[in-house]
Nucleic acid binder design. Structure first.
Lengths: 145, 145
DNA sequence: CGTCGAGTTAAAGCTAACTCGAAGTGATGG
DNA sequence: CCATCACTTCGAGTTAGCTTTAACTCGACG
């Protein structure tokens, strides 16, 4: 029987429009059609789509994903080049993770600052902080906003 | 003295064009100008730009970064909303890390498969694998390309 | 004084990845 | 028989984030 484009769209949190767009761009050449001309996705098609989403969500451009699909259709001659693509892309993903970790540090530092200063601000009138602390916070506020 | 736009561009691996674009979009309202009208970046400006790059590289749209900058200029009334922005964005970044980890698993699985099958393919003629193994690999190849 | 390099603006152009709309087809339920 | 609904194609439009171009201005160097 297979899945309709609508069902697949829901499963993958895409729109039917987007899936048709992927098809038009050559990412789904393996998807069969019903007599009426409607796309019928098999379970293996869903596996392909899952991989396509994985590559797309890790920043691979649609054109390169298309190359990969073409290589797959070409057969065993392209096995090595495909393997190499995954090796390279894996490196890319690791780099993304490193960058993300670095940026998370920056955000955490910022957040620590905001947590401190917001607490002071809310209780500003009630709690006596002492003049030195107040001055200190003013300076901090100017330096690290 | 301060840095020129070219120096800053090099430091941050951006182009001068891009920095001017950020300025035009309201991300750099604090940058001073020389008598000649050229931008002069101070060390504190570089800190701002570093944060801007951090937010941009973790997927925050330029418009939202602009909001943040505006809130900063407005003063202490916006401290809490700014803190909340960082709390929310931190969650976003953690989600990105999770997704990246999941996708890395998919890629690693794929790579394991390609490593195996490429090894077999290269030594295909030399090494006797036995008929059973060959059949098995054929099937695997069809299922998990 | 000329010219070179680095800066300036404003506006147009580009690419990727959708996103939408119009106009039509085919199966199903009342 | 007709409406509804999910699908179809094709082509145009949108958005974000640059990127390029044209025409210009400084300040320093020979």
């Amino acid at each position: 029987m297979g899945y309709t484009i609508g069902q697949v769209a829901e499963k993958f949190d895409l729109t039917a429009h987007t899936i048709r767009y992927y098809d038009k761009e050559g990412l789904l050449p393996f998807v069969d059609r019903s007599k009426a001309g409607n796309r019928e996705f098999s379970d293996s098609d869903l596996d392909w789509l899952k991989l396509i989403c994985c590559l797309k969500n890790t920043g691979m451009p649609i054109k390169q994903i298309k190359h990969y699909i073409e290589w797959c259709l070409q057969g065993d001659d392209t096995l090595e080049i495909r393997r190499q693509m995954f090796v390279d892309h894996r490196k890319e993903v690791l780099k993304q993770m490193d960058n993300l970790k670095e940026n998370l540090k920056t955000i955490d530092f910022k957040l620590e600052f905001y947590d401190t200063i917001c607490k002071v601000h809310v209780n500003g009138e009630k709690l006596s902080m002492g003049k030195q602390n107040d001055d200190c916070l003013k300076i901090i506020r100017q330096i690290v906003i």
